[in-house]
């Protein structure tokens, strides 16, 4: 049976792993960007980024001082019995990781702006729970700094604006963002649904590794087209020009009202931190996401 202690320890371990090392698909994409870049200033930025990853790993230190806020996506099989408060346990793990790793206290009251010393509060961390069949248990973590988060946008397009409207929305978002979200970024796009589901799908899209193709051929083509257009914007690494504005574009969709076309864009900085854990033979383990 899945224990409270297992979830607590694993969540801390996920935060630690995500903050100090990047997934392999992301480092590979950064190295590829360095190989293809011709602008010498942008090349230097990519070199510094890769050097930073090496130092963070060696010193076991957070890659970026903006250790972000946390979104957990949890899938729970309905045959599984949890005899503890999952949200409380994950929240407690964030507070402990904040002291232990350490993480910067980023969570504040939105009105008084007073820091919350535990680095937790209402909806922080954000936990999305999905009930599934069987007895699986999977936790996926996204860590997001505010540089990228602040550049996210929601467009409520007209229903007939179609693929072209979607592309334009993403390109307009990238142009407006410029160097602010720490490019080369990963762009998560949520299409359809309502306001909140489009945003959620945009975030969920960021969980898919860069080298994993979209199973939907129409979306896979759209991802490629947007990626090519984005990399022609000459925003480049750190916003200093060049052909590496995005590392990838990831799209998810949800069914839409016939009169709506919601398009949400969530940006993820090049420090694209994520971690996953799931039940393997009855034990909760960190897995490659």
């Amino acid at each position: 049976m899945l224990t409270e202690r297992e979830v607590y320890q694993t969540a801390i371990e996920m935060l630690h792993r995500a903050e100090t090392t990047l997934p392999k698909d992301v480092t590979r994409a950064l190295r590829r960007a360095l190989r293809t870049e011709q602008n010498p200033i942008s090349k230097l930025q990519l070199e510094l980024m890769l050097k930073n990853l090496e130092i963070a790993r060696k010193l076991d230190a957070p890659i970026c001082q903006d250790t972000g806020t946390f979104t957990f996506f949890v899938r729970i099989g309905r045959k599984l019995i949890l005899n503890f408060d999952l949200r409380e346990v994950i929240t407690r793990a964030v507070a402990e990781a904040t002291k232990k790793i350490p993480l910067r206290v980023n969570v504040v009251d939105p009105i008084t702006r007073k820091p919350m010393s535990s680095n937790t509060g209402k909806e922080q961390p954000t936990i999305h729970i999905e009930l599934t069949d069987g007895n699986e248990f999977q936790m996926d973590l996204l860590v997001r700094g505010s540089g990228a988060e602040n550049c996210g946008r929601l467009f409520m397009l007209g229903p007939t604006e179609g693929l072209n409207g979607i592309k334009q929305a993403v390109i307009a978002t990238l142009n407006e963002a410029g160097g602010k979200p720490c490019p080369p970024t990963i762009v998560g796009v949520g299409i359809g649904g309502s306001m909140e589901t489009a945003c959620l799908e945009a975030k969920r899209a960021l969980l898919r590794p860069l080298d994993k193709k979209n199973p939907d051929p129409i979306l896979a083509k759209l991802e490629r087209e947007i990626e090519v257009a984005a990399n022609r914007l000459n925003i480049g690494a750190a916003g200093l020009g060049g052909k590496n504005t995005v590392l990838g574009v990831k799209i998810e969709k949800a069914a839409s009202h016939t009169a709506s076309l919601a398009v949400a864009i969530a940006m993820q900085c090049w420090v694209a931190r994520r971690a996953s854990a799931k039940l393997v033979n009855g034990k909760l383990r960190l897995v490659r996401s």
Partner: peptide, 11 residues
Amino acid sequence: AFPGGAGALAA
């Protein structure tokens, strides 16, 4: 400009 995200290096 210094690249954002390169916090460990800057430190």
